[in-house]
Design a protein around this nucleic acid. Structure first.
Lengths: 281, 281
DNA sequence: TTGCATTTTGAAAATTTTTTTCTTAAAATA
DNA sequence: TATTTTAAGAAAAAAATTTTCAAAATGCAA
């Protein structure tokens, strides 16, 4: 993915030596400084020479200090208003925080999404005889949304909100099929039961979950991870729901493009059908 | 940083002389250039000397060219990669575009959301005897999500995916109740029928729709508008769905805070119930 | 129109900032 | 212990930015 300044530091952090870590720490501790600071000021703040800073930015993948500091500036602004919602927050503050939480989830998820893994998932779906979508509770929204999207392709797709029916569908699937299993926590008992049934039948499984280390992620052939810092005052994370929906939509869009014109015909037919339900004025 | 780089140019534009206007035009025509360009490159691109550019940035209120170009970068859309998805796009490009589309929808919707209107909606919900959520097709997702959220408050809430049942619920509501009606287009025939029934019974209605001028928005007492530039290859806009979900979540969060501790007890109870469905390992 | 004053703007000089080279010291290896 | 390698700052070089200066253009009054 397009590296951001901060992520370029974090992903290289282990390869940095002490001097470079000092610079990295200074920047991470206060990301806004580096766009205000010249290379010399940053060097002084980090207790190193400006030569080391110059070498540092090149080491982590930028062309020049100027490039780096501009990159740092371009990503800084968006999450200023991010964090726990407090008792004292005004309505406006609450709206702001909910929206930045969602934006943040999207940004972080995108950064962490591995294209190779994603492409493998797309291929799996394109070559499936039938695709089954499984999700319970809040995750059923994501499953339902995926169902809605996949209906517009030429792919056969199954989804039902009811757990018992999902379980039966899972049991009936074969190794030519693909199951997409969604769970925020990745450790919901019922969802795991479905994933295990799929596994038993050698159905290829794609997990969409918020935790890369969850039982579901470990069970699945491919797992796509949504990442969101949770915000106060909610049992399930809305932000990760947003991230998961967007993963699902990317998946559908990529599948649609891979299948090409075959899909476009279906989309057009459906669009016409929907258009008829709308009033003109 | 009250002024953004672009607005500092626009607000000073009339006071600029020809040379400065040439520079201003170059930047406005392509705001991304100035963070890539050195002062000299910008000078060449604008057909002026670098001295003039240096004077220009000071004239419009910045300390140095460096300051200015960083300011330009920080305001610049992180959605450089936004727009129609093309046949030639790689999988990585598609992911990027879908995610930026969603981010963009959130940003724009937040910008346009009027706090006063929003607060009025929150008050309405807090004082309602019962809240009904209505949405069909893709919008039923938003309704269902809202239902999920409101269940965690002490408010009475009704929602059903089936249109006929929604209609019956609408008919039975009274003027002490509030109906939240969701429709992307704001002109779905069935959704409008529900909104009209609500109106007939003097039920207060809140519309969540993508179009401020749609019949639904005009019919409703309060309308909350989600805004998203549509991206190719989809019948319904996923981006506006994301925006609507986030509006709904903001609504729930604000309502939850307004109701205060009464809600927290319900949330805790539900959280415990959910926790029990999870496996420990 | 002419002459004088003011403004504008680029060239060049001065300054500041960044990058590279060079050198020394420390660490690793033989 | 000797040699090689690595690391990091000092200093030099290069690049970028700002200021100064002078020529040209413009405005204004007589």
């Amino acid at each position: 993915m397009a590296q951001t300044a901060i992520s370029s530091i974090k992903s290289n952090y282990d390869n940095l030596n002490n001097t470079e870590k000092r610079i990295a720490d200074t920047i991470i501790a206060n990301p806004t400084i580096a766009h205000d600071f010249t290379i010399q000021e940053l060097a002084v703040a980090s207790n190193v020479s400006s030569a080391s800073v110059s070498r540092f930015v090149k080491h982590i993948g930028w062309d020049s200090y100027r490039d780096f500091s501009v990159a740092l500036a371009s990503h800084e602004d968006s999450n200023v208003f991010f964090g726990e919602i407090a008792e004292t927050d005004s309505t406006k503050d609450i709206i702001q925080k909910v929206f930045s939480g969602a934006t943040n989830a999207l940004t972080t998820t995108l950064e962490m999404l591995d294209t190779t893994t994603f492409t493998a998932a797309v291929d799996l779906i394109c070559n499936a005889k039938t695709v089954g979508l499984f999700g319970i509770g809040g995750s059923s929204l994501v499953a339902f949304n995926g169902y809605h999207k996949l209906l517009r392709t030429s792919i056969n797709v199954q989804q039902h909100p009811d757990y018992d029916i999902q379980l039966m569908q899972a049991v009936r699937m074969t190794k030519q099929d693909v199951g997409i299993v969604i769970s925020h926590s990745g450790r919901n008992h019922d969802t795991l039961t479905i994933a295990e049934k799929l596994k038993e039948n050698n159905v290829k499984t794609i997990a969409i979950t918020s935790f890369a280390q969850s039982p579901l992620a470990k069970l699945a052939d491919i797992s796509l991870v949504s990442i969101a810092e949770e915000v106060n005052f909610r049992a399930e994370s809305m932000s990760s729901l947003i991230a998961q929906l967007t993963i699902m939509d990317s998946l559908f869009t990529a599948v649609g493009f891979q299948l090409g014109s075959k899909t476009q015909v279906v989309v057009d037919n459906i669009r016409n059908a929907i258009e008829k339900t709308r009033v003109s004025k």
